[in-house]
Amino acid sequence: MSGSLSGLRVAFLVAGEGIEQVELTRPWQAVERAGGQPELVSVSSGSVQAFHHLDKADTFPVDQIVGDADVEDYAGLVLPGGVANPDALRRVPEAVRFVADFFAAQKPVAAICHAPWTLIEAGVVRGRRLTSYPSLATDLRNAGAEWTDEQVVVDSGLVTSRDPDDLDAFCAKAVEEIAEGRHRSQSRSAPSTDVG
């Protein structure tokens, strides 16, 4: 895994429940190993409920409420999957705006599995090449993305992967892109931040 995140804060945005636990914990550990400081950002305070497929797993404490979070405080954004998690996030205007603001700021974003649903809502996938859990392929294409069935896809600071089997490649590329810093072409499809 290349790239040092020493002293850099990385936001992990999740809803209150429905997060696929391994898609949160593995990238989190990768950020820590690279010297970064991961922070759990969610729609409300307290803790969030992770799942292993459909079974409840662990809970995790929230560090920051998304409505109070500032994109300028973070070097990058990680969006874990799980079916319910991104579906809930895309209905929260502050969460959608937070995602869109990372693109407007040209900062790296990494999304795995079902997480690109939130990217669609943020209006940032048109003209971008990415992957996701296969059931999102039609949704992404309809939103203007070029969907491809690959382990990990990197497009100007946007890192995407299909599912937990791709986590090794996803984590390595997420750390690498965040370590590289801003990507000038990251915001090419981003809307204004007046989302929601």
Rank of each mutant, 00 (worst) to 15 (best):
S45H: 06
A104K: 09
V125N: 00
S45D: 11
H52Q: 10
D58P: 00
R129L: 11
C113F: 13
R126F: 05
G81Q: 12
V66Y: 09
P86I: 05
D63G: 12
V71M: 00
S47W: 00
G46M: 07
R90N: 06
D55E: 15
S44G: 04
H53I: 14
G82C: 01
T131K: 05
I120D: 06
D68G: 00
V43E: 12
G82F: 03
V99H: 04
G46I: 03
A111H: 08
E121F: 03
A57R: 10
P61S: 15
I120G: 03
V83P: 00
D139K: 13
D58S: 10
A122K: 01
V78K: 00
V62K: 03
A50R: 02
E94N: 08
D101L: 12
P116W: 14
P108C: 06
V92I: 14
L119I: 09
A115M: 12
D55Y: 07
H52G: 09
D70V: 04
V125H: 04
V43S: 08
E72C: 05
R126L: 12
H52D: 12
Q49A: 05
V43Y: 11
T131N: 04
N85H: 08
R97G: 09
P80K: 07
I65R: 10
S45V: 02
E72Q: 09
A105N: 12
I112F: 02
A111Q: 10
H53N: 13
